[in-house]
């Protein structure tokens, strides 16, 4: 990868209370690329996005976005930086007191002085790209889960940011919307030269659109590579993940006492 780096993550550590979630993560994300982050449920993908967005601070190490160390920024500087990035939340996080239209228009109204007529056209264009122009009058409660996520996607691209973080954009989408949204992420990245970070479980769909993949397991990067490398990989971890097998190095269970001792089989059979 030769192009300019937008996000640089260096020896990043993070723990909740005393439980280490991320341990020594290093990543480089160039401009104009789509990067996928994959890993089992609860391995810290959302946490990583929140670290990049600056809503939590690392225990050690740093995240640099456009050359600035995120957790050292003042609140004003952080807000300034966030105007150029956006995040699609795992559960959409649409503003429930605003209509679909007002949700998408929210940042335009907050951060620009565009006249209402221009905002109207922009909002309808953004909604059109996710196929929901006809739904602009609805309230978020009147949307299905997948529709809400598409509206949230339209909202997150409202101001054409430099960096978009998508937290599981594909869950709850039917196969058609899924591939439309996948291609949309690819096209937006190419057309606007932005960087997209996609957290996803959808291996097959994301391998079609991304430039680079990181696998996280137990807080460390277990493997990384281009989609072609990943498909051909014989590493047991990657193989298990790409083919969705239960047995392998990725644990399905959250760390716990032994099953037998939790069910107190020991007492009974002692």
């Amino acid at each position: 990868m030769t192009s300019e780096t937008l996000v640089e993550i260096n020896d990043l550590n993070f723990s909740y209370d005393k439980r280490a979630i991320l341990k020594g993560i290093n990543m480089t994300m160039p401009r104009g690329k789509v990067i996928a982050i994959m890993g089992g449920s609860g391995c810290g993908k959302t946490t990583l996005l929140r670290l990049i967005g600056g809503s939590i601070a690392p225990s050690s190490g740093y995240v640099k976005v456009a050359g600035q160390v995120v957790h050292e920024l003042s609140r004003d500087a952080l807000f300034q930086m966030r105007r150029k990035m956006s995040m699609l939340f795992q559960f959409g996080a649409l503003f429930t007191d605003l209509s679909v239209f007002d949700n998408v228009a929210f940042q335009m109204r907050e951060h620009t002085n565009l006249p209402e007529a221009v905002i109207r056209d922009l909002v309808l264009m953004k909604l059109h790209t996710v196929g929901l122009r006809g739904a602009h009058k609805l309230m978020p409660t009147e949307l299905s889960g997948g529709m809400a996520r598409r509206v949230a996607l339209a909202r997150s691209i409202a101001l054409d940011p430099l960096l978009i973080m998508y937290d599981e954009p594909f869950t709850g989408l039917d196969p058609i919307s899924l591939s439309v949204i996948g291609n949309l992420i690819r096209r937006l990245t190419d057309a606007l030269g932005m960087t997209s970070i996609v957290v996803t479980h959808d291996v097959q769909e994301s391998l079609k659109i991304v430039d680079y993949v990181y696998f996280i397991s137990e807080g460390v990067i277990a493997a990384h590579g281009t989609p072609a490398e990943v498909r051909d990989s014989v590493a047991p971890f990657v193989h298990q993940f790409v083919h969705g097998e239960e047995d392998g190095p990725v644990p399905f269970h959250y760390p716990a006492n032994s099953y037998a001792s939790d069910l107190r089989l020991g007492d009974r059979f002692a």
Binding site: S55, Q80, R82, M85, F89, F91, A93, F95, E110
Partner: peptide
């Protein structure tokens, strides 16, 4: 609880 406030912060709106 539904992360709307967090989303707003991420949009640089206080």
């Amino acid at each position: 609880a539904t992360e709307q406030l967090a989303a707003m912060e991420m949009m640089a709106v206080d």
